[in-house]
Amino acid sequence: MPGAFLWFIVFLLIVTSTGLLVSREWRWSIALLAGQYAAAFWLVEQHWPLTMAAAKLVTGWMAAAVLGMTQINVKSYPAVETSWPQGRTFRLFSAGLVLLAVFTVSPQMTGWLPGLELPNAAGALVLISLGLLHLGMTANALRVTLGLLTLLLGFETLYATVENSVLVAGLLSAVTLGLALTGSYLVTLTTAEDGA
């Protein structure tokens, strides 16, 4: 696969994960999550058979669908976090700083795991670091789930270069779906509490 295409994928991952961080509209968040899985599919597909990579893509989309369906039935979505920091500019600025660190570290990362190429390392680190940033800035159940799914997707992209066991792929898919279901459950609970 041409290197330029892989860098385009990394660019898409930057857009989707930064978008998830700053988005205040749940529909956009779910769409960005689905897009994120589609972009990560191309990175994973380099190391895994097409069928296994496709299974990961479908699992990710199912996770997005589960969260979306839950959110349809929930009236409120926290446009503003209860804790500092809240502003979009601040989030964009922090994402920029994190991305700077990612692109500084990723060349060293390639020597760390056998077969790991620079676009894969950069893409995985983008997801992991922005997922972590997301988790550090929120206490909302849906956003925590989105942050965890982003972080986990980054790790899966990295891990796919060294592990292609069907059992591991299956369990990681189970974890992705389980996280989405858990997130939906928690969203429903918090909404019921808010409404009570």
Partner: peptide, 22 residues
Amino acid sequence: GPMRGLLRFLISQTFAMPFILL
């Protein structure tokens, strides 16, 4: 009451998995 502890539990235990696998 609220679920801050539960969310932290989920995050904390989920963090463990990638580190141990790698």
